[in-house]
Each structure stands twice: as C-alpha cells, then as structure tokens.
Nucleic acid binder design. Structure first.
Lengths: 262, 262
DNA sequence: TATCTTCCTGTTGTATACAGAATGAACACA
DNA sequence: TGTGTTCATTCTGTATACAACAGGAAGATA
C-alpha cells in the first residue's frame, strides 16, 4: 500500500498522536476497539477483514492479529464458519462482569491483607486516599472533577490489585476489566449529572478508606467483603443508568449493551 | 510447502488422528502446547517461529496465531523486543492459580445457588455424584480408576461452573483452567501412588456432595465457602507433590514449575 | 409458483516474500 | 586479558498472493 512506502518519519508524523510508536497490530487493535466501543460497528454484525483494512489503513495481517486479541478480550466473538462478529452484551452480562470484578478484587484485597504490604505501598495508598478525599469533598461543578476522580479511582484500584503480589491474579483482573463497562469507573460519568452524584462518591470513598484500613490491619475477610460490596455500587449505578438512554451513552462501551433483551 | 500441494484427503490421512478436521492454527496450538507442557521446550527459552515451523510442519502464519493464543492463555509470554518465550511458573504462581480457581468456582457455585437450578440440572449433578461415589468406594488398584475419576471430576466441575448461568463467569473460569496445573484434577495422578489417595478422594467427594446440597438448598454462602475449600485440597496436594520430583512429573505441566525459586 | 441446482462473488485461512530490527560473534585495541 | 565496535546472521512484523470455502443470487425444472 502507499503509506508503507513512505519513509518512516513521514508515515509516523501523519498518524494520530496516540498511535505513534506502536506496531501496526497495536494500532489496529486500538482503532478497532474504538470503533467497537463507540458502536460505529454495530454489535452482532460480522467484521469483514477487508472492510477493516480499508477503514484503518493497515494490512490484513495486523487486522487479523487485532481481531484475535479482541476475541480474547471478549469484545468480538468467532463465527463458527470463520471470521468474527462484534459482540453484544446483555444487562445481565454487565451485572455478572461487575460481580466478577468485585470477586477478583476481593481476592486481591484479601491476599494483600493476609500477606501484608510494605510501608511504601501503604504510604502510596494513603496518598491516593487523601487526593481522592479532596476531589470528593470539593465542588463537583468544577471542570474535570469527574475525570480527575476517575483517574485517581482507577489508580487506587490498580494499586490494590497489585498489592496482592500475584501476577496470576493481576492478569486475571486485567482480563475482566478489558470489558470497559466492568471497570471501576464505568458508571461515574453516567452518575455525574444526577443529584445523587455526591452521595455515591462519598459512599465509594468511605469504602476505599475501609478497604485500606482492613488491608493495613491484616483483616483479610473484611477487606474481601468490603471490596465486593464496593463493586456492587457499580451494579446500583448500572440499574440507574439503564433507565435512561442518555445516561447509557456516558458509559464506556454502553453502545454494546442491549437493554432488556428478549 | 510440499504437504500443501497434496490432495486434501491424503494430507488429512497422513496426519495424527487428533489433528483431523482442525485448522492449521489449531493444529499448531495443540502441538505447541504439547511441546510446552511436556517440557520439551524449556521454560524461559525463546520460541523462534522458524524453529517451530520446522518442528510442527505448518507455516509461520498459523504458528504466529498459535503463539498469540498461547500468550493469552499464559503459557507463553511476549518478549519486549519481539517474539515470545516459554513461561516458567513458580510454586507460588501455582498456589495462586489454585486459589483463583477456587474463588471463581466459588462464585459460580454461589450464583448457581442464589439463582437456582432446574430439575434436569439437579438430576445430572446427582448422577455424577453417584458415579463418582462408585469410583471412590471401589478398589483403587483397578486399571484406569484414576483416569475415570479425573474424567468424572472434570465433568462435575464443568457442570457446576455452567450452572451459574453466566457466560462471563464461565469464560473466566475457562481462562484460569487453561493453566493445566490449575485444573481440578491436576494433582490426582500425583497422589494416586500414595497411601493417602483414598483418604483424599474421600474428602474431595464429600465436598462434592456438600456443594451440591448447598446449591440445591439455595445456600449461596455455604456453596461458595465449600467450593473454595475444595480447591484448597489441590493446594495441599501441591505441597505434597512438590517434595518429590517423580510426583511432579505426574502433574500436567509439571515441567513448567520451578520449585523453590531463588 | 415453489424448489432445486448451479454458479459467482466475497471471505477467510494459509503460505511466503521482504524490510527493518535485534542479537551475537569476530575483531581491533587498550 | 578485558572492552568496545563493527558486521553478519537471524528473527520478527508486515504486506500480499493464492486457494478453498461459504453464502447467496440467478436460473432451470416440475
């Protein structure tokens, strides 16, 4: 193709910034995921490799690689006769994914508590809590407040899953979170508009504190139970968001969710 | 290559039976997994695509596909500079994998209990239990007794994870069990030789009964706790097997496990 | 008009060629 | 003898050609 013949630097410069430095496969994966999550590719529809090639401008080989990766992630499913189709999710699937995340994060929290964490990790957690406190207590009307919360929240969850000290567990949690609506912050933006926002953030943040306390005091069972319950907050938010199409549009991957399927 | 030019039937006939009807990619995946699990490819070593091509007789494309699949499974890990390496596992990794399976199976059992199962499914479970009872109570010296136990045990676990009625959860459990030493029957053969075999099988089978009872009586928390504890039997068996090189050889994927790493 | 057959188009699975990058060996030099 | 450098080899990532296959439309026949 034409682009491949360009000198490397020119080709790089002409690409979207986020794609720089990535291999074609990664590029294809990112682009395809974007197309899927935004709903531009309708859930259920077949994904023709050639069509994707034209759309994202890399050859079939990396597209194919991207498709198998996305199939592993679960965003795409293999068709028996060959090829892949964009996957649709039921509300129950979302609910189960959240429960799954809660269970695995609960495991991670319990392991962290049982095995103990170092002083440095403890301080990192406390710092994160303090910064989250600021955001939650501050004015919610300020710009980017929720984006800031999401970033800090994601970091907190990453920390806790990392503290288990188990590659195996960490990997598995990453897998679950590959489904974007299963992520800890999936429903934050959907709630941001509601008047309940502050209440929910307050509850979540209190749970954050409690989990850290439990981990520091080596209370494994408590850490686990709290972490599970924490995930159920997302479940509640899902129930609320499901009532409004507008709210669902704020949820990452919301376009893939078929509400009240037959 | 030569083989590709052969008429389909001849090529098929000349292949090992297990490979019939599969695509080249699946063939490569099976063959590679076998090479990895048997330890023929040393853990930690780099996997040259060309070397694999020569070894299993399919071209680079399906080999590459197989490698990415195995990377998702976790048997192989990507090298930063490109390519893949056979992965080695620590005893802790195995322990964590077992804990992970227990946690997820516990979730499945709880969901099954909470959501309830149909009469048909209940009967299937009872039948399986009865057949397992026979094996466990019978003479353990008879040929293939343990193979039979493994098959029935695997089926029982498959049933329970299926009863949760959640694709998402089921998929995740499949992922964990892709690591062969995490499977419910991983350490059965290693224990088969010991005098403790009957005791362990008896304990496991009692837990099977208890889990089914809990599910049928809709006791979610109990089903979950039992299922977790059930998985810890494997953890105990691991501790025993780890003491003997001969016992480890009986464990599927045992060759990948680096005991007492530095 | 309904149904079966045939053929054609589009699609995937596979093999392979090529370019750029990485790795390791050989060699020069301190 | 140890160290830094250069070069050749090997490898991966990507593009593309080709063949088998699936699915569907058009046409023939009852």
């Amino acid at each position: 193709m034409a682009e491949a013949a360009l000198p490397e630097s020119a080709a790089e410069a002409s690409r979207p910034r986020e794609d720089r430095g990535h291999s074609q496969s990664v590029r294809a994966q990112l682009a395809l995921r974007e197309l899927l999550l935004s709903g531009e590719i309708a859930p259920g529809s077949r994904l023709s490799e050639l069509a994707i090639v034209e759309r994202i401008g890399v050859s079939r080989t990396p597209v194919r690689a991207a498709l198998t990766m996305l199939a592993e992630e679960g965003l795409v499913e293999p068709i028996p006769s060959g090829g892949f189709a964009a996957r649709a999710f039921s509300e129950q699937d979302v609910r189960d994914s959240i429960e799954l995340r809660g269970t695995l994060e609960g495991l991670a929290a319990r392991l962290a508590a049982e095995r103990g964490i170092g002083a440095l990790a403890a301080q990192t957690l406390r710092d994160l809590l303090a910064r989250l406190d600021e955001v939650v207590a501050g004015p919610l009307g300020a710009p980017d407040v929720f984006e800031r919360y999401i970033a800090l929240n994601a970091e907190w969850h990453r920390q806790v899953t990392g503290l288990a000290g188990s590659r195996v567990v960490e990997r598995q949690i990453e897998r679950v979170m590959a489904l974007p609506f299963a992520s800890p912050s999936a429903f934050v933006m959907a709630q941001a508009q509601t008047e309940e926002a502050r209440r929910i953030l307050t509850l979540a943040q209190d749970q954050h504190h409690a989990v850290v306390e439990a981990i520091l005091q080596r209370e494994g069972a408590r850490a686990e139970a709290l972490m599970r319950e924490h995930s159920r907050l997302a479940g509640r938010n899902l129930a609320n968001a499901a009532r409004s199409r507008q709210a669902m549009a704020q949820v990452p991957g919301g376009a893939l969710i078929r509400l009240r399927p037959a």
